[in-house]
Each structure stands twice: as C-alpha cells, then as structure tokens.
Amino acid sequence: MGVLHKDQPKFDVASINGAAVGDSDPEVSESESESESEGEDAVKLAEPSKTAVYNRDGLADKLKDLSWPDNVEWIHKLSIDIHSEEAVDVNDDLTRELAFYTQALDGARQAFMKFQGMGLPFLRPSDYYAEMAKSDSHMEKVKGQLLAEKKRIEESEERRKARENKKIAKEVQAQKTKERAKQKKDDIESVKKWRKQRQQSGFAGGDSGADLNFDFDDGKGSERSNKKRQGVRPGDRSGGKARQFAGKGKTGSDKNKKGRDFKDSRFGFGGKKGMKKQNTSDTTNDFRDFHKGDSTNRKRKR
C-alpha cells in the first residue's frame, strides 16, 4: 500500500506524542496524528491541519467513474436536492431537527409532484398490508408509551390546578367576607338615610314610625327594649302584659279558652315555665344565700 509509505513521517510524530501507541491500525493512528498540537478537548480542531490530503482531481475522477450515466431517469435515483439557506446550529437540538424535517418534507412534496406527473403510485393505499419496518408488538409498545405520557401530563396538570386553587381559596374567602360586611353596611346606611328623609318630611315621631322599625337596625329593635323593662323574664314574649292582665280575664269564644283564661286568672300565667327557671342578671348577682355553709363544715361532710 502506497499510502502507508507516504504517511510514514507523520506516523512517527504520532508515536512521539504517545496517544496512538496502543492502536494497532495504521489508518487510525495516521488520522490521530493530525490533531497533535491541540491542547483543548474540543471535538473539532480550531484550525485545519496543514498536512491533510485533499486531492480534488482524484475525487473528481472517482466521481466520474462511480456515477451512473447521465441519461438515467429520476425514478432510478429517487434523489432530491433541497436548497437550504443558512447553516444550522448543531448544538440547538430543536432548530437542527426542524431543519432536517423541513428538508425531508420539501423533498417528499417534490417527489409527490413528480410521481403524480408520471402517474405512478406514491403512498401506500390503506388496504395494502405488508410487512412493516417495525413489528406490531413494537408499535404496541410505542402506543402504550404515548398513552402513558399523555396520562402523566394530564395528571400533573390536574395537580398543578389543584395547588393553584388552594392558593387562591384563602383570598376568595377573605373577599367574600369583606363583601358581605360591605353589603350589610350599605343596607344599614340606606335605611338610616330613608328614616332621616322620613323624619324631615313631617312623619316625625308617631307610633307609625316606631312600627316600621327594622330588625337589623343595630339591634335597637324590640328585643333590646324588652330586656330593658324591669320585672320581665327573658322568654316572656308578651313583654310582661300577660302578668299585667292576669287578674282581669279575657273574653274568648271557645270554651276551652275560657277555662284556660279562668285558670290563668286564678293561678296566674307569666310566660313559659322553662324560661322562668333560667337565670337572669338579677338572680346571678344575688349572693344572699352564697355564704350559708362554713368551709370546715363542708370538709367534715366529705
């Protein structure tokens, strides 16, 4: 082989550098010798090595020997050249793959036009079944993987949503309470305004004004005023009137009612029993029989 003799001096250089010592194949060691001087571990040399062979005439000759005759029809070759504008950045996976994809797609489209021009079939018809490059079991796996991927994405999406909702929920709750408070305040305000207007327009005082009291008017309604009255039990809805009228008796058409009234007048009815037994502020503040028993007495009892 003439090549080896020609490249002998370079080979020596390689062995000096020591990188190619263990290699048995002369060709590899030759190629390694090109890259001696570089100290960096870049895959590509920064500058082309000067000793590299580039025999343009030889290449052209070989190409002429190799290539098919010019009049060979395209259908034999099926090759399409696609013009690409700019060099792609190899390290950017996405743009690189996109460049390959667009090249292939353009090629496929051009080929399709050519096939259509020649009236030849192009894609496989759907009822043409034959052995495929990948087996059915493999495609099953691919499908399963795709489905799993989809499911995984959906699940993660759901989780993300739930997390965000939780974050928002607190704010939403606060907003709601604020709104409610505001609503209440507005209502009260409007009622006050309405009352003021009424007073100004001449319906001042009067029983009718008192009748139109609203329950939500700051708790100043009937209940509070009831409590203020002396001698009335808290559950007494008659407001002490029952006791007031107890002696007088009441007119009633019903016989039962008459009897009740009679009994009431005789024994007295001052409201419901259960409410009578509850403590009021008067009874709780009554310490009259608190210190009756001595502490020593109690001890002895125990």
């Binding site: 090549v3 290699d23 590899v28 390694e32 890259s35 590509k44 040399l45």
Partner: peptide, 13 residues
C-alpha cells in the same frame, strides 16, 4: 491512495 483527509478530525482516543 488517500483522496481526502478531514483536516478537522480528532479521534475519540
């Protein structure tokens, strides 16, 4: 005969 040699090639070794 070698017709072409990649001037930028660095072997993985």
């Amino acid at each position: 005969p070698t017709l072409y040699e990649n001037p930028f090639y660095v072997s993985p070794n």
